[in-house]
């Protein structure tokens, strides 16, 4: 940071009010710390009002029973007990964990691979990067609509491909979004497709900060390609990998739009995530209290990930 001694000395006006002079509001406001806090107040108040208050209100809602257009009655832990006894809720929980785990592993492994091949020099590298990024850039909802069309059993791209190569007979292609197992696979595939570039490009940015000299000296010491990757590249990449993975875990775990647009949670709740389940309970069937409880059930995971992240950021 800037610690130019000459300038430090030349800014008494921005420091404490010199002794012996009367207090002046203007000078006080010009002090760096005072000014900064003053500037920070409106955004902090805004975030408190628009994130803190709704969150507390959500906690309150989870303790009441509140059918649409009727007064609320306090039910204590009733909503949570109902959730606990709800098989669909547990299916949504299980789905969410499966979905998050599978998609994160795929994105991480694929992204690492993408970063490694992109780290070499080749022709049209800039254009390649732009193309690889497309899935991440295009609004998720819109690309998901396209995927819905790709998965279409009769005329979608996948089944037309299978038909084209005579792998399935006419109209006998798999029902990608209609079969419970395949639907989950499809949802994971689309999430991976979308998130892969985020991992790839961010890890690539990390790769580019590793000095060449390190690689060269490792080579001179006799390290082969694998040893260089395992003992030089990977340890140096860990901070980036950690950040990108925690980020992705949060956004995958709380994903809503992908499943809502692609399957609506079906078939038979096979792809319901906790977020889509909370929406269907809270909004579609109008049970605000139970919906809030279902949304709050996701908080422990968020808390754990945020804690991990903040302790890591502070250490770095």
């Amino acid at each position: 940071m800037s610690t130019n001694p000459v300038l430090e000395a030349a800014r008494p006006a921005t420091r404490a009010v010199p002794a012996g002079r009367p207090f002046r509001l203007r000078e006080w406001l010009e002090r760096e710390a005072v000014f900064s806090w003053l500037m920070l107040t409106p955004p902090l108040l805004f975030l408190l009002a628009f994130l803190g208050y709704p969150f507390c209100y959500g906690v309150y809602l989870s303790f009441v029973k509140r059918p649409v257009a009727q007064p609320a009655t306090f039910v204590g832990l009733g909503n949570f007990v109902n959730l606990w006894n709800d098989a669909i809720f547990w299916q949504a929980v299980w789905n969410t964990f499966r979905f998050t785990a599978a998609a994160t592993v795929l994105k991480l492994v694929g992204g690492l691979g993408m970063a490694l091949v992109m780290h070499q020099n080749f022709k049209l590298k800039g254009m390649t990067r732009a193309l690889l990024l497309l899935p991440f850039i295009v609004p998720t909802v819109l690309s998901t609509v396209a995927w819905q069309w790709i998965f279409d059993p009769g005329m979608g791209m996948f089944n037309r491909l299978l038909m084209f190569f005579d792998l399935v007979k006419q109209n006998q292609g798999p029902s990608w979004l209609g079969n419970p197992t395949l639907a989950m696979v499809s949802v994971i595939l689309v999430n991976t497709w979308r998130g892969l570039p985020f991992f790839g490009i961010t890890i690539l940015a990390g790769l580019q900060t590793i000095p060449d000299e390190l690689m060269e000296s490792a080579t001179i010491d006799g390290a082969g390609t694998w040893a260089r990757f395992r003992y030089v590249t990977l340890p140096l990449l860990m901070p980036v990998i950690f950040i990108v993975t925690t980020f992705s875990i949060i956004f995958t775990f709380f994903d809503f739009q992908l499943v809502y647009v692609l399957t609506g949670g079906g078939p038979a709740n096979a792809t319901h995530l906790m977020a889509t389940y909370a929406y269907s309970v809270g909004m579609s069937s109008g049970q605000l209290g139970m919906g809030s409880a279902a949304a709050l059930a996701m908080v422990p995971v968020l808390g754990v990930v945020l804690l991990m992240m903040s302790s890591y950021v502070r250490r770095a």
Binding site: P54, A278, A295, L302, M309
Partner: peptide, 19 residues
């Protein structure tokens, strides 16, 4: 402040809808 960016919208849409 960075952490508040990570608070997902799927957590808050129900209380927001009431507000």
């Amino acid at each position: 402040i960075f952490m508040t960016y990570l608070v997902p919208s799927t957590l808050l849409f129900i209380p927001f809808s009431r507000l």
